[in-house]
Design a protein around this nucleic acid. Sequence first.
RNA 1: GCCCCGUUCGUCUAGCGGCCUAGGACGCCACCCUCUCAAGGUGGUAGCACGGGUUCAAAUCCCGUACGGGGUACCA
Length: 466
Amino acid sequence: MQAPRVRFAPAPTGYLHVGSARSALFNWLFARRHGGAFVLRVEDTDESKKSQEFVDAIVEPLRWLGLDWDEGPYFQSQRKHLYEAAIQKLVDGGRAYYCDLSAADSQRLAAEAGLREGYHGWSRDRDVADGDGVVVRFRVPDEGSTVIEDLIRGRVEVAHDTIADFVIRRGDGSPVFFLANAVDDHDMGISHVIRGEDLLNTTPKVKLLWEALGYGPTPAYAHLPLLVNERRQKLAKRRDSVALSEFKAEGYLPEALLNALALLGWGPPDAVEIRPMEEIVSRFSLEAVNKGSAYFDLVKLKHINNAYIKALTPVQFVAAAEPWLPEHYDLAVVEALAVEVQQRISTLSEAAGWLDWLFVDEISEYDEKSWAKAMVKGRAADRVLAELAGVLETVSFDDPATLESCALGVGNRLSEELGARVMSQAPLRVAVTGRGAGIPLWEALTHLGKERTLSRVAAARSRLAG
RNA sequence: GCCCCGUUCGUCUAGCGGCCUAGGACGCCACCCUCUCAAGGUGGUAGCACGGGUUCAAAUCCCGUACGGGGUACCA
């Protein structure tokens, strides 16, 4: 294959959603796989969609994901002269014409003519003069059909009589998507158009324009299966929470998100799902992309994210998790305990929940369920804490093994004395951390220190008594 | 309504006529490990939408039906 040229061409809507990111990724994968170019183009033909803020909302997430582009961003709003020339060419050649009818007008005419709703070429022969508020429509051939050879879907044929003469220039003079699309893809030498299936229906229109403009062979088309919500509807900004920025804010790693996205609509031939992006690049092919829509399962995303988090070194982990670490954290302590936290979280935002008790003076709040289970149910809780306080007082907090054997020793001693199994770790953990579950206690206690440990045991004992 | 697309375990997928008594992953369940919770290990659960063809042979090819989705704008 000659080096392909692909493009990601989002409309600036104020944010980037995962469906768009998936389209960008598949374009990027294809370009990287075949040594081609990945072009970024902002489709802002609609005047209301222009602003730096909107552009940042596209560019920033792409950078975060690491989907680097080779050209652009190009802006359609800055290329108006090209579209105007193309429109003029179509009008001059009789392939397009002016129309001054409103939607209400064409509805009325359709009713009068006893035709189905819609535009039926009313202005084709009316010789309307150009002017303010006048649109340009493309004259769709009455006969025949347009065929798309889609790389993913195969042959798709659409009869011309099902396509109405569509608008290619708005009343305010701005070009419409179909037109700008054809002009830009041609001008930028795009060889493969890879995008969501929701655009499949627009492809015949673009192709018709392409041919009318004398552009020669069209790019190859590949329409990706849609990403859908749990009700299997296309992901939409309004009803689905899918902004890329939210994934970032919740502590997903970009590499994990990309890996997960690559698995939607495509699967590696060897079934190894979690792997470095370069391995995905080298195995990717458009022909292997499937046709059915895919639900983006957050549970699986979390699994993948956890795998990537576990793969980080402690230093990398602390750097990545920094925004979510507890207040007043101690870098050395977090690094020392990082491995234990990493295997327990599926998003970075969960990190603080496992560490916060290490960086406060005292436990202000106990998890009541854990307290009830460890402190009340086992009647020996106060005895355990009392014994523990006595023993821990006398030992060094440098070695986790020492603390463990002290605690287990207390448990064993009391088990014998009371004739029932007495667990020492549970009450100690609740006393010291406020919770019933957490990272391994003994090493953590070496960092908490003797003083704070003992004062928390004392606090728990007085709470027990009171 | 009309046009277009799709349909393999709950979910994401492998499968592109015989290797399929349908493989993997997530989830779920059980067991192992473990004086917490995880992680890890082992095993299990669950699926070719339906009906006709074609063929010696169909999850794989064809037709139809059902269901789902997308589009039908002076959004992209």
